[in-house]
């Protein structure tokens, strides 16, 4: 399978602060990838490196087999919606579409019109007068109508109300069926990601903490509850988080083999999994590392 994105030893430094370090990740094509992590973990940095808005300080990144933003052809294959959903405030909605048509060789008017209709946007309206949600819809329309092979969405859902959000996700998923587009989407809304994603990357404190197919990740993680004991005695499993009361121990583990039946074993949902990895790293980092 070809990779839609491949990073090796990728790092980005702003001044003295590393926003992303030693990022090595391989994302297969045809997936909808959820990028999650705490604020400031480096999600936006990784996405901006992927679309060529930033240049790496260390290592390298390849997107759709080429260097990000290396050529007009490469640019036309990647659709990007930034977190701030920027638009040209002086131009009308229609003028944005005309711009999209001029700038993108694979521009699809039919897609653009259909999305505009379903979002209820007036083509004559100036973009500067749109609400936050409407602006997000316009940005998304431009990104989808250029018919990219890869769609990169940085927190696209935060400005949308629940109904519009659902409609947007429906449209997004339909376009993955029709056009086979790969998607990388960062979000804090795990329940949305659980619906739409089949691949997950967890970024914590500027490093990739976990990456893989969601089904495989859920299948390999378990929650264990049992009488209090030292988790160091647990063979064949990596302990991600542990909680103890006087009598009871609760663990979230990545199990490589069936777990000792003395534990009460239960499955782990996506939200628990993400939270466990985010929490584990917050606990393990020394204050010095946090400051870095």
């Amino acid at each position: 399978m070809t990779a839609v994105m491949r990073a090796a030893g990728l790092g980005k430094r702003f001044g003295r602060r590393w926003a992303l370090s030693e990022c090595t990740v391989d994302i297969p094509a045809g997936r909808v990838v959820g990028l999650v992590g705490p604020n400031g973990a480096g999600k936006t940095t990784l996405l901006r490196l992927a679309v060529g808005q930033l240049q790496p300080t260390t290592g390298g990144i390849e997107v759709l087999g080429g260097r990000p933003a290396a050529s007009a052809a490469q640019l036309s294959r990647v659709g990007y919606v930034a977190q701030s959903t920027p638009v040209y405030s002086r131009l009308t909605v229609e003028e944005h579409l005309m711009l999209g048509d001029r700038l993108n060789p694979r521009w699809c008017w039919k897609t653009a019109r259909a999305r505009l209709d379903s979002a209820g946007l007036d083509p004559r309206q100036r973009a500067g007068r749109l609400s936050g949600g409407q602006r997000a819809q316009l940005s998304l329309t431009l990104a989808v109508a250029k018919r990219p092979d890869l769609l990169v969405l940085d927190e696209p859902l935060s400005a949308l109300d629940p109904l519009v959000r659902r409609e947007f996700l429906q449209g997004l998923m339909e376009s993955t069926v029709d056009a086979g587009v790969s998607v990388i989407v960062s979000s804090h809304v795990i329940s949305d990601l659980e619906r739409i994603c089949d691949h997950l990357v967890i970024l914590v404190a500027s490093r990739v903490r976990l990456a893989g197919g969601i089904d495989e990740l859920l299948a390999s993680h378990r929650q264990l509850v049992g009488p209090r004991r030292d988790p160091a005695t647990l063979p064949g499993a990596e302990v991600i988080t542990e909680r103890h009361t006087e009598r009871q121990t609760t663990l979230l583990v990545r199990a490589h083999q069936p777990v000792d039946p003395a534990w009460t074993v239960s499955e782990v949902g996506l939200e628990d999994l993400v939270l466990a990895y985010m929490k584990a790293d917050a606990a393990n980092l020394s204050p010095m590392e946090m400051a870095r």
């Binding site: 996700l169 998923m173 029709d178 619906r195």
Partner: peptide
């Protein structure tokens, strides 16, 4: 159809396929 389920539930097509 897979497309109908995807459009209705807003879920990943691979999920339906699986």
């Amino acid at each position: 159809t897979i497309k109908a389920v995807v459009a209705q539930l807003a879920i990943n097509p691979n999920t339906v396929l699986k």
